[in-house]
Amino acid sequence: MTSSLGASVRARAPYQSIVNRPVLRLPGDARVVVWNIVNVEVWDPAGAMPRAVLSPPMGAPLLPDIPNWAWHEYGMRVGFWRILEAIQSRGMPATFALNGQTCEVYEEVCRAALEAGWEFMGHGHVQRPMHKVEDQKAAIMQTIEAIRRFTGKAPRGWESPGLTETDDTLDHLAECGIEYVADWVLDDQPVALRSPKGRITSIPYTVDTNDVVVSAVQQHPSDEMLKRGKAHFDRLYRDGAKQPRVMALSVHPYLSGVPHRIGYVEELYDYILGHDGVVVWSGEQILDWFLAQNGGQPGTHGKA
């Protein structure tokens, strides 16, 4: 028996199998869209860290948490620049998922992403689960405004910290003008979500080819992103001969930008780019393609 909350979640994305839906078409009959997402966040050294690499001595939490804050800070000082070079040198677009505060705390990083032509995507105002945000709508608007001030353009996409949402988050996002979300990792193609506040689409993000999961949560060896990414791509490429797929690659500077991992990420990029029938797009490019396929109508999944 489904709870009322469970029913509410399911009602946002009515079930539709990928084998029984109208076929989408990519330019040149390409098979796979690759979506690069680079995630940058602001971690407060005076508070609990969003994630830890080193457990506290004798198990007692200690603040300020210098070692775990510094672990992340390395990514912003050093790792980001490796990732930037890896993506730019291959002529790929990317989506830059950022906390609103990043525009102030790491202005140099944000300026480099802007100059690279990356799409900016809201990722919360601070790195905090949406369930812990007292006024979600205000925080969403604050994030949008921070990005608008920095780039001159409001973000069209949103990735909640930790992919967290309450039952109200989607409606707040739609009401604030957000057009797509990356939280609903339930398909290989965009999915029209339902909100009474306006049209909003799920763009396929990932927890499988995401370095947080691979390196920080599951703690695989440094080459796992390459091995998993190649296997993941190979299957999507095969499936894409009948129905095109989206492959998201999510990286964080403090994980993929470190010396022992960046080479494997670069090798994965080169492997994917070595195939015909692949396009690399930003999130908003994927959104525009999907909406053009179904005539811009909410609640549909494409037309043949």
Rank of each mutant, 00 (worst) to 15 (best):
L54T: 14
H232I: 00
V40P: 04
E145K: 10
E159F: 06
D288E: 13
K137D: 13
S202V: 03
G100M: 03
I147G: 00
W43H: 11
E267R: 15
V19Q: 04
V181Y: 02
V207S: 09
L114C: 09
A70K: 13
L226I: 03
F120E: 02
A116L: 08
V185Q: 12
V34K: 07
Y254I: 05
E224N: 09
E41S: 02
Q127T: 08
D65K: 07
W71I: 02
A138P: 05
A112W: 07
E159M: 14
R148V: 00
P14C: 03
F290T: 05
S282R: 14
V19K: 10
Y254N: 14
Q127S: 08
I178L: 01
A174P: 03
Y180P: 06
T2H: 14
V38K: 08
I286G: 04
Q136S: 07
S160Q: 02
V251T: 12
K137H: 14
H301W: 14
N20M: 05
I200T: 01
V185R: 13
R10T: 05
L249H: 01
A241S: 12
H131F: 13
I144E: 01
V185Y: 03
E41A: 02
K242S: 12
Q293A: 12
D288C: 00
H252N: 10
H220F: 13
R238L: 11
P61D: 04
G6W: 10
P22D: 07
N99T: 04
L26W: 05
V9C: 08
A248Q: 12
A146H: 01
M130L: 13
R25S: 15
A182Q: 07
G79K: 02
P253G: 04
G59T: 09
G263H: 10
V109N: 12
T164F: 05
G157K: 00
M141Y: 03
V251C: 06
A60F: 14
R90C: 09
I147K: 00
Y205A: 08
G295C: 06
G177F: 00
G75W: 06
H260N: 14
A97N: 09
V78W: 12
N294R: 15
Y74V: 06
L26D: 02
R245T: 09
E267Q: 15
T206H: 07
L255C: 08
E107P: 09
W69P: 00
S282T: 15
V213W: 13
I178D: 01
D211W: 04
P45V: 05
P221L: 06
L255P: 08
E104W: 08
A112I: 02
I147F: 04
H72A: 10
A248Y: 03
P45Q: 02
A86M: 07
R25M: 11
T206R: 08
R149M: 07
R77A: 09
R261F: 10
M92V: 05
H260G: 00
G117T: 01
M247W: 00
A13Q: 15
S4E: 15
P93Y: 09
I144T: 03
M121C: 15
K242M: 13
W158V: 00
A231P: 04
C103T: 15
L291K: 05
S17H: 12
F80W: 10
L186T: 10
A116E: 06
D183V: 03
